[in-house]
Simulated assay, not measured.
Amino acid sequence: MRDFLIYVENALPQESPYFVSKQAIADALGSVAATAEIRSCSANFPDFEALERAHYFVGSGFDTARLKEHGKRLRIIHCTSAGVEKYMPLDWLPNGAVLTNSSGVHGRKGGAFGLMTVLMLCEGVPRHIQNQRLHRWDNRLATGIETKTIVFVGFGALGSAIADRLRPLGAKIVAVTRSGEAGPCADQVFAVCDLDRALSLADCLVVSCPLTASTRGLIGEAQLALLKPGASLFNIARGPVVDTKALVRALLDGRLSGAALDVFDQEPLPADSQLWDVPNLMIFPHISCDDADGYVDRCLSIFADNVSRDLQGEPLRNRVDAVAGY
């Protein structure tokens, strides 16, 4: 008889880099795995008997109603992603259960990807891409990254990872956070209530905050108008944080020199979306932060640590705050 049961639910096939295998769970747990029963099921073919006995759940994109009905013994529900907006509000959580996420695992790849993208935006690469399509030679020069002010709306694990890589290149780092506080890699910090002041400083705006009720539509027409003429924008947060229609207008009328989107209101982005053809817009298919190798293992390291903490009665990591929304 094992001491506890872990129920793993996969919405994607085994060949997906997001697939969580029983072996991956066991490897993450280490010696603790000897006391665990691990059940792995497809989201389309659940094992309700096992779910009703389970103490821990691992999955992503899961059906909250299913967990509310069949997961009454669950203590930890771990999401193998950072964004948890789809699970709000947390009124579905079984009594005694907590939701944890995988925030923090995206910093390594997302930081490097963000560095690449900010440098491309500041160097005018969207314009060069557009000119290549038009067979047009335009050799206007850009100023160096050390002359730029990069404003981050959201300065958690992802935003600060990008800033850490930019700072040695001489860029000025400005952070906008809910508390008005940030780590040492920010040169200047504003609270969200002073967002307008921060935006007026931006040569490049990096949107890297969670999607919550208070951040939905946070960057709209009025906010984009506050950016420096010829500024650029990179959204690596969630699509609905930025008003896409307002962004398109700012690109078409030249107020923004370029933009890059890795997230969208609807994903996958429909083939007939206007965005594909907007000048000076770079589109990435939500691939900035996830690694083809080792992503699941990093998510499971948080889960395994929390199992150990739970068994020892210690506070959990990455516990989702129902009030904050992340």
Rank of each mutant, 00 (worst) to 15 (best):
R255D: 13
P240T: 07
Q223H: 14
L247H: 05
V263E: 04
C204H: 05
Q274T: 14
L205Q: 03
C204F: 03
G230H: 05
P270K: 08
V248E: 10
P268E: 11
P268N: 10
R249M: 07
S208Y: 02
D265V: 04
A222G: 06
P279W: 00
L256N: 03
P268W: 05
G294N: 00
R197K: 14
V242N: 13
A250G: 02
Q274G: 11
A213I: 10
A198W: 06
P270G: 09
S200F: 03
S288P: 12
S232T: 09
G254E: 11
G294F: 01
A292G: 15
V248D: 04
A231P: 03
C209D: 06
A213S: 13
R216L: 08
D253N: 00
T215K: 07
K245V: 11
I219Q: 06
S273W: 01
I283E: 07
P279H: 12
R197A: 14
Q274S: 15
D291E: 15
R238C: 03
I283H: 09
A225D: 12
D243M: 06
S214E: 15
L218M: 15
V263L: 05
R238Y: 07
A198R: 03
R238T: 04
T215L: 06
L269N: 07
L227R: 07
T215F: 04
V248Q: 07
A271K: 14
L224R: 01
K228L: 14
L275G: 05
G239Y: 02
D277E: 12
V206G: 07
N235L: 13
L199G: 02
W276G: 00
I236L: 12
D265W: 02
T244L: 11
L218C: 05
T244S: 15
V278W: 02
P285L: 05
P285T: 13
K245Y: 13
Q266A: 14
